[in-house]
Simulated scan of single mutants.
Amino acid sequence: MLAVPKSQQVKSLAGIWRIDQLISEAPDDAWQQLSCGDGAKGPRLFDWASAKLPVIDFFDGDEPTHRRWVLARRSIKRPDEIAYYLAYAPTGSTPADLVRIAGSRWAIEECFQAAKNECGLDEYEVRRYPGWYRHVTLAMLAHAFLAAAAVERGPKKRFRSPRAALRGRSAPAPGHLPSPANTPT
C-alpha cells in the first residue's frame, strides 16, 4: 500500500490516466462507507472506492498471483478531500482487505511521530550539513534504546540511573569506573 499524489499516472484499459481523473470517473455506487480501524473517537469511517488495474503480461506472467489496485479515501464530511493509494495485493483480496491495510498505516505513522517527538526531531528542519545524517541516526538509535529499555523493565519498574545505583557508596577514583563486582545489577 503506497499513498500517492493526485497527479500519479496509472495505466488502465482506456490508456494512461492521472489517478484523480480515474477516480472522478467512478460512479456514485462505487463508493462504500468502510472503517479502516478504530481511532481515539471510535471507528474511522470514510468513503472508499477501489478498482483493479489490468494485468501487465511481461510483469505479471500468465497466471498472476498478485494484482495492482487503485484505492481512494474520501472524507464523509468534506467529500472534496480525497487521498489516493496504489496497492499490490494477492489475488482474491477484497476492497475491505485493502481498507484495513490502509488503516494500519496510521499506527506506523504514529510510531514514527512518537520517535521523532522523543528524540527531539519533531521540529527539526533538514539541513544538509556533514553531521546531519549522524545526528538523525544517533537520535533514532537513542529512541530504539529507550523503547527496548522500557520493554525490558516492564510497566512497574522504574529506571535507576547509574548515580542512583551508587548512592551511599564511596565514589570511584576520578577517571575510573566502579568494578563490576561492586556495581548493582
Results as ranks from 00 to 15, higher is better:
107 A>L: 11
54 P>G: 07
49 A>T: 11
52 K>H: 08
107 A>G: 14
87 A>T: 01
97 D>V: 10
59 F>E: 10
62 D>V: 10
57 D>W: 00
68 R>N: 02
77 K>S: 15
94 T>W: 04
88 Y>E: 08
58 F>Y: 13
105 R>Q: 14
88 Y>G: 04
52 K>Q: 15
71 L>G: 07
76 I>R: 15
65 T>F: 05
109 E>V: 02
73 R>W: 07
81 E>M: 14
49 A>Y: 03
50 S>D: 10
54 P>M: 03
65 T>L: 12
101 I>N: 05
101 I>G: 02
73 R>I: 00
55 V>M: 01
86 L>N: 05
110 E>P: 00
70 V>Q: 02
51 A>W: 06
68 R>G: 00
49 A>M: 06
86 L>V: 11
55 V>T: 12
46 F>N: 09
63 E>D: 11
47 D>R: 14
108 I>E: 08
90 P>W: 01
95 P>A: 10
50 S>A: 15
61 G>A: 05
97 D>C: 07
93 S>W: 06
78 R>P: 01
89 A>F: 11
64 P>F: 04
109 E>Y: 04
110 E>R: 13
89 A>R: 04
66 H>Q: 11
86 L>W: 10
84 Y>N: 08
64 P>G: 01
72 A>W: 08
52 K>E: 15
102 A>T: 12
93 S>L: 07
61 G>N: 04
64 P>W: 04
98 L>V: 05
46 F>D: 03
93 S>D: 05
95 P>W: 04
51 A>P: 00
109 E>T: 03
66 H>N: 10
103 G>I: 03
62 D>G: 12
103 G>H: 04
51 A>K: 11
61 G>W: 00
83 A>M: 13
83 A>E: 13
67 R>K: 09
91 T>E: 11
66 H>V: 02
82 I>N: 02
61 G>E: 01
63 E>P: 00
57 D>T: 10
61 G>H: 00
63 E>A: 08
105 R>I: 14
89 A>L: 15
97 D>W: 05
51 A>G: 09
54 P>V: 00
51 A>Y: 00
110 E>I: 04
88 Y>V: 05
66 H>F: 11
99 V>F: 00
87 A>H: 02
104 S>D: 15
87 A>V: 01
46 F>I: 01
92 G>K: 06
93 S>V: 05
86 L>A: 12
99 V>S: 03
101 I>F: 08
71 L>S: 07
98 L>R: 02
72 A>K: 09
69 W>A: 12
94 T>Q: 11
90 P>M: 03
49 A>W: 08
66 H>T: 06
98 L>I: 04
98 L>Q: 04
86 L>P: 07
